[in-house]
Design a protein around this nucleic acid. Structure first.
Length: 773
DNA sequence: ACCAGGAGGTTTTTT
DNA sequence: ACCTCCTGGT
């Protein structure tokens, strides 16, 4: 009989959930929703409806009054998934859902840490360092100790520290096991220690700390953990196969029984075939050994797939069967076989990209929305060729992840101003803005300020107030004081607002900082053409702060900083955007699209060359391929190129071993590996029915968060090239052709050209490599 | 203190 | 091919 946890309602037991909650579920799914007990493992194959099951499980707990919303903690993989789950639960049970915690591991930990920071020597306004910040900090240390000559480069040290933290090994724990007679190890320990010290001094946590320090907090201060243990009676974790040891330990801390508090009920959902994050410490044993860890656990297996055609599932099953270290599992569907998988081998990455662009256009003409199409790749470097061709072909697209908005220098600058206000202890942010824009404060002055702070045991920020004692020139002293005063002014704006007054919007704070610091003026005055794009990006950031305030009327500066620090690549996906989505295979996890293009299916790329050294490397790469395949609902395309450019060199590539694992009869090779023949990559297209320009459609209705993407890219610019119907043109790749139609206006002008040998193409006039004849 | 030009490293995947 | 960092000149 299911064990009942303390019920908040007066009714003796759980009521039967309404049938709506169980509508359309198969018996396994139903069991996963209804089972009650201390621990439940849902082994959910790709596309088996696990999100729906998880959502309904939560809704049923609320509906039957077995749990208050506040007793539920659900962990998802992305913020976007969290938001969607919250919406769906709300839709089912209404505002009874308010008060649940549905978030990612990182967001949940930040929330806890901001509340409890004072307990262990931090302030609640701590900064979250992203990997770039960590590297910047480590770079100084590596240089200071000349560690790179011993083979301790920044990347190396950063990776090792991250791994250790994910195993809950801090510098002190590490010092007990390290072999100090090895000078390299001793040096690494020193850097690890210094790095941890610097983080603490800056009142900052890096990504790994967010989890590890929460675990430490709970273990070291049981009275802090107690209210959380008491509160969260039902904990649900999605994508459990990708949890690392620290995350595992956190869940363990929250679920274990304590004085007067029974163990919380734990539900985990996962699929070991989709484990793709071993490189960042994900431990597949967490799921494999779940039944040992939680002896009373029940396991429910979901194998029926509701996403893909049988053809796609057959390919996926065949591929994953080659991983020997797994429990056999076969996905099946009640739907039909569907279309064959399409294969294509290009001569080059460009040729492959052209195939992708052509097929996307074909699908679109056939009635498929751009937003239902995705292009995946193993490495971010592969986006170059794809992007170039998609721009030329006027296919609206969006890249998820990659060079992120928040990693751009001008955005980091602006954020550093905000951080300097929110967290005065953060010397990294302070140093960044000290001479940005240029105020004549150089290296020498910066060092003097740092020394002053060190000598007097004050923060870098505080040292600015004593510029007069520095012995610098009056001009420099005035610059320092000016910056200090500006930060004080901004700080005053963020002071807690009076009773029931709204806080001053982040927008106002940022705009004050950007104006009065002279940052925008410097960009405006610059003659560097890139600075125009930078200025636009600053404006875009200001728009983001506006948007933030709209969504969070009571949001404080610190909330804004938290939100922006934790955006994941997949969070950027916008279902209403009307664009094709480009992303890495890792980012694709958990998503689904009607049509999927898997590109670069080559040896050394997938599996990636670097994976050969990693233990279990090839298996993990195969799972990555499996994840990619199973994202497709209706159409799947596999493409590769015979040559590929890397490091500016062209190298010959070989088809991936994984291709041979797919039964041949499932693939329709348009151009198979090893087969050649000029022109095959540019087949003639059918009739055209393109309506409107790129800017029209859903994208134009919504003020999208778009930033100037191509700051540096040497995009060809044909200027005001005038084309009329009937003109002859020559294209670098397609040869000569005749213009059939012109649509769109200005920069979005699109020409439809019938080429003599390459077929009919749509080209963005402004950037296509064409000349008028 | 600032800038231009050149050398050298870089690409696996991410919160 | 591209980007970051270092150097030497102003």
């Amino acid at each position: 009989m299911p064990q009942l946890v303390q019920s908040p309602s007066a009714t003796p037991g759980p009521a039967e959930p309404s049938s709506a909650l169980l509508d359309g579920l198969n018996p396994r799914q139903r069991e996963a929703v209804l089972y009650r007990g201390p621990a439940l493992l849902i082994v959910a194959g790709a596309g088996s409806g696990k999100t729906s099951v998880l959502t309904r499980r939560i809704a049923s707990l609320l509906e039957t009054r077995e749990a208050w919303p506040s007793q539920i903690l659900a962990i998802t993989f992305t913020n976007k998934a969290a938001g969607e789950m919250r919406e769906r639960v709300r839709h089912m049970v209404g505002h009874a859902s308010d008060g649940m915690w549905i978030s990612t591991f990182h967001s949940a930990c930040v929330r806890i840490l901001r509340r409890e920071a004072e307990v262990f020597g931090y302030a609640s306004g701590f900064t979250i360092y992203d990997s770039g910040d960590s590297r910047a900090l480590l770079k100084r240390l590596v240089k200071q100790y000349e560690a790179d000559v011993m083979g301790l480069g920044v990347a190396n040290v950063a990776a090792r520290i991250s791994k250790l933290k994910n195993e809950l090994v801090d510098a002190e724990t590490f010092s007990r096991s390290v072999n100090l007679s090895d000078p390299k190890e001793a040096l690494f320990l020193t850097i690890f220690r210094e790095y941890s010290r610097a983080l603490q001094a800056a009142n900052a946590f890096d990504f790994d700390d967010l989890i590890a320090q929460t675990v430490y907090l709970f273990r070291a201060f049981p009275h802090v953990a107690e209210p959380y243990r008491r509160r969260f009676r039902h904990i649900l974790v999605d994508e459990y196969q990708d949890t690392n040891h620290a995350q595992y330990a956190l869940i363990r801390e929250l679920t274990k029984p304590a004085e007067g508090i029974p163990a919380a009920s734990l539900t985990v959902v996962g699929d070991s075939d989709q484990s793709i994050y071993a490189f960042r410490g994900a431990d597949i044993r967490n799921i494999i050994e779940f039944e040992q860890d939680y002896p009373e656990a029940t396991v429910v297996l979901l194998e029926q797939n509701y996403r893909s055609t049988q053809t796609i599932l057959d390919a996926a099953n065949a591929v994953i069967a080659n991983n020997f270290d797994r429990k056999p599992k076969n996905l099946f569907t009640a739907g039909g076989a569907g279309a064959k998988i399409v294969g294509f081998t290009g001569y080059s990455g460009h040729d492959e990209a052209q195939f992708v662009a052509d097929e996307i256009e074909q699908l679109h003409r056939g009635g498929m929305e751009y937003r239902d199409i995705a292009v995946f790749y193993r490495t971010n470097a592969q986006t170059r060729a794809l992007e170039e061709i998609l721009i030329r072909s006027a296919v609206p697209y969006r890249i998820l992840g990659g060079t992120k908005f928040y990693e751009r220098a001008e955005i980091k600058d602006a954020m550093a101003y905000l951080i300097a206000v929110a967290n005065p202890a953060d010397a990294l942010a302070m140093r960044r803005i000290l001479n940005t824009p240029k105020r004549g404060i150089g290296q020498v002055t910066e060092t003097q300020l740092a020394n002053l702070a060190e000598r007097n045991g004050i923060t870098f920020r505080e040292a600015l107030r004593h510029a007069a004692d520095l012995g610098v020139g009056p001009k420099v002293a005035k610059a320092i004081t000016g910056l200090s005063d500006l930060l004080d002014e901004a700080t005053a704006m963020t002071a807690p607002p009076a009773e029931d007054a709204a806080p001053i919007p982040v927008f106002d704070v940022l705009s004050l900082l950007m104006q009065k610091s002279g940052y925008v003026d410097a960009l405006r005055a610059s003659r560097d053409p890139q600075d125009e794009a930078r200025l636009e990006n600053i404006e875009e950031l200001l728009a983001v702060t506006k948007e933030f305030q709209r969504n969070n009327p009571d949001g404080l500066l610190i909330d804004f900083l938290t939100e922006t620090a934790l955006v994941a690549a997949a969070d950027e996906l916008d279902d209403s955007s009307g664009t094709v989505s480009l992303m890495t295979l890792h980012t694709a996890k958990g998503l689904e699209f009607k049509a999927v293009f898997l590109t670069g299916i080559e040896e050394d790329l997938l599996p990636h060359r670097m994976s050969a050294n990693e233990p279990g490397g090839p298996s993990e790469e195969r799972r990555l391929f499996y994840v990619g395949i199973t994202r497709a609902k209706e159409r799947l395309y596999l493409s590769l190129a015979m040559t590929r450019n890397s490091y500016g060199e062209t190298s010959v590539s070989a088809p991936s071993r994984f291709l041979a694992e797919i039964p041949a009869e499932l693939i329709d090779w348009r151009q198979s590996p090893g087969m050649t023949g000029p022109g095959a990559g540019s087949r003639a297209a059918g009739s055209l029915s393109w309506s409107g320009g790129v800017g029209s459609g859903p994208a134009a209705q919504k003020p999208k968060t778009e930033w100037t993407n191509r700051v540096t890219g040497k995009v060809r610019d044909n200027g005001d090239l005038e084309l009329a119907i009937g003109d002859r043109v020559r294209h670098d790749d397609f040869g000569e052709g005749r213009v059939q139609a012109i649509t769109g206006t200005a920069a979005k002008r699109i020409a439809e050209v019938q080429f003599d040998t390459a077929g009919r193409k749509r080209l963005l006039v402004k950037v296509a490599p064409i000349v008028k004849l």
